[in-house]
Simulated assay, not measured.
Amino acid sequence: MTESEERRDVFKLSRDWLSVQEVVDTVSGSSCGAISMFIGTTREDELGGRKVIGLDYEAYELMAQSEFSKLCDDIRERWPTVTHVCVHHRLGWVKVGEASVAMAISSPHRHDGQQAIRHCIERLKASLPIWKKEVYDTQEESWKENAECPWALQNKVPPVTSSRENV
């Protein structure tokens, strides 16, 4: 990293479409020879005869920002060459095929960035207070826990299911 280039950590929660180019531009820099990306999209899935038509995301925004800062510190401790980190996550309704999360990490060489991006999505799903509700073609909906969450690993929180009146 050049002396004129300071590290950037950018976290954005938005109800708007995610711009992959904006995420890439945020982590670009003169000392960055590699940009590693992850884009998570809402997928059509069938569960118990019901088809997922979209996800509805909510977040505790102030806490999410704080946890993101901790995540960036952890990434830089593990991979000191990481230059910039950017994560944009959707809130609200995200239909099948649309991006729910777009993240990029830059580094001088690809190896650290590739490892860091995998760590970033796994830790984001485990520790940031962002929740998703699956919405089905039957108008039912169900809050889903990420497999990476500590309580999911302990199998202590049962899924909550309700009916959805308006899609």
Rank of each mutant, 00 (worst) to 15 (best):
W93I: 14
K156N: 03
T83P: 03
E134P: 12
S30T: 13
R90C: 12
I75Y: 12
I121M: 12
F38G: 12
I75K: 15
E6D: 09
I39W: 02
L124E: 08
I35A: 00
N166T: 09
G54D: 00
E122K: 05
A152F: 06
V85R: 10
S163E: 05
V160I: 09
D56L: 13
A152Y: 07
A59W: 11
G48I: 01
E145Y: 02
H119G: 14
K95I: 06
S66W: 13
C120I: 04
D45M: 07
V82S: 10
L18Q: 01
L62N: 12
A34P: 09
K125C: 08
R50G: 08
V23Y: 04
V135M: 00
N146P: 03
E165M: 11
W131Y: 05
C86N: 12
S19R: 01
V20R: 13
S107Q: 08
L13M: 02
V10I: 14
I75A: 10
Y136G: 09
E61C: 12
H84E: 05
E61Y: 05
A59D: 03
A147C: 09
C72H: 06
G33R: 00
K132D: 03
V87L: 11
D112L: 11
L128W: 03
H89P: 06
A104H: 11
V167R: 07
T81A: 14
H89Q: 01
L55E: 00
A99M: 05
V160T: 00
E44R: 10
S66D: 02
I130F: 14
E98C: 12
I53V: 15
A34Y: 05
H88S: 15
I35H: 04
K144M: 04
W151D: 01
D137K: 01
A104V: 11
E3G: 09
G48F: 06
P80A: 14
T26W: 01
E3V: 14
S19T: 05
V23R: 01
D45A: 06
R118M: 05
L71D: 11
D45I: 07
M103G: 15
E141R: 02
S19K: 03
W17S: 14
L18V: 10
D45G: 00
V135D: 00
T26H: 03
I53F: 09
A152W: 03
W143Y: 13
S69C: 10
R110S: 07
T83W: 10
H109D: 05
Y136E: 01
A64S: 13
R8Q: 14
I75V: 15
F38V: 14
E46Y: 10
R78Q: 15
R8F: 08
V101K: 04
E44F: 04
Q139W: 05
T161L: 09
S106D: 10
R164Y: 08
G40L: 00
R110T: 04
L62M: 10
A102D: 10
I35M: 04
G92L: 06
I39G: 02
I121W: 14
G33A: 02
C149M: 13
A102C: 15
N146S: 11
A104S: 09
H119W: 14
I35R: 12
D9M: 02
F11N: 00
L47H: 13
T81S: 15
W79C: 09
E134C: 03
D16W: 04
E67S: 08
P108M: 10
V94M: 06
A104C: 03
S14Q: 03
A152M: 08
G97W: 13
D73Y: 09
E145C: 08
E148H: 14
W79Y: 15
W131C: 02
A102I: 15
S14D: 03
E122M: 00
V52W: 05
